[in-house]
């Protein structure tokens, strides 16, 4: 972390401290604002204002009969007792607990393999593993959705070619795993790249020293590589936590293929979306989104704290 240390405070002499104190901050603030002004304006417009507006909205309730009225925290207490909201949260938590470790572990293994220098055609592997990340999530979901089809899809083809009956990936029991598969496919390359670039900046001298000490490749990984990229691991972990809680594209696309497996409250974001766009419950939707935002922040922060504590 870089810190901007103030210049040594030896500029002036004792007299006129009051004058300088008056003048300098003024000058500073004007020129400073000139530079950050554009950013602050956009920041306020596209970030702060929407948040403030959402919080404002969450204190009201607009009914089809009876119109708009201030309801205080009623939306929040409703959300906290809403079984649909909790079931959606539970679902993404389960998703987080299973999918994220699997994805990060595979990404890590791939990154280590690429970094080991023993892989033939390294850049080919790197690009082909990264490629799915370049496919838009909507397209990826559609593509996988077609493959999952038991009638005309790949699963159907396998079934009829081999005369077997694979379980339907779009059934209510398997749909979460099927979505996990899509997300893993999409994001392994992305996480691999984060890990790989962190591995590349490890000083060569450490490896040389380890070689002199007669360390094995495995020891190299556990003693040098993993500790060195812990920061990247934490970052990737936080990204994944946020991504899991924000799960939306994949279930939203697959919903048309498996309407009975993916409910309107499948994930918190999908729930907020349905509340808004089918139910016109904008206020309640804002409340759900705010609560989810807070929960996401808390959990991501917990992941970060844990990652840091291990290091120290």
């Amino acid at each position: 972390m870089t810190t901007a240390s103030p210049p040594p405070a030896v500029l002036g002499t004792q007299p006129k401290p009051a004058k300088r104190a008056q003048k300098r901050p003024q000058k500073r603030s004007w020129s400073g604002w000139l530079f950050i002004g554009p950013f602050m304006a956009v920041f306020a417009l596209v970030f702060l204002a929407p948040i403030a507006y959402s919080i404002f909205l969450s204190f009201f309730r607009n009914q089809l009969v009876g119109g708009n009225g201030f309801v205080g925290l009623a939306n929040y207490s409703q959300a906290l007792q809403d079984p649909q909201f909790w079931s959606s949260l539970l679902r993404v938590t389960l998703f987080l607990a299973v999918q994220v470790p699997v994805m990060l572990l595979i990404a890590l293994l791939v990154a280590l393999a690429l970094d080991s220098g023993r892989l033939y055609g390294k850049s080919f592997f790197r690009i082909s593993i990264f490629l799915p990340y370049a496919v838009p999530a909507v397209v990826a979901s559609l593509m996988w959705g077609f493959m999952y089809g038991t009638r005309f899809g790949l699963v159907g083809n396998i079934n009829s070619a081999l005369g077997i009956s694979l379980p339907n990936p779009l059934s209510p029991e398997l749909i979460l795993a099927s979505i996990g598969n899509i997300v893993t496919w999409e994001f392994i390359g992305y996480n691999m790249l984060i890990f790989y670039s962190a591995l590349r900046v490890i000083p060569k001298s450490l490896y040389e020293a380890a070689e002199i000490d007669g360390a094995s490749q495995f020891r190299l990984v556990t003693a040098i590589k993993l500790p060195a990229i812990r920061g990247a691991l934490v970052v990737a972990g936080i990204f994944s936590v946020i991504g899991s809680f924000q799960l939306f594209n994949e279930p939203a696309i697959l919903q048309s293929l498996a309407p009975n497996s993916i409910s309107t409250f499948f994930t918190p974001n999908l729930y907020a979306y349905s509340l808004s766009f089918s139910g016109q419950q904008y206020n309640y939707s804002a409340t759900v989104a705010i609560i989810m935002g807070v929960i996401t922040m808390v959990i991501a922060y917990a992941v970060q704290l844990r990652g840091m504590r291990k290091e120290s």
Binding site: V46, P50, S54, S276, A286, A289, M292, G293
Partner: peptide, 9 residues
């Protein structure tokens, strides 16, 4: 997240 919900709002 908030921006997204503001859009819906």
């Amino acid at each position: 997240l908030a921006a997204a919900l503001a859009l819906t709002a």
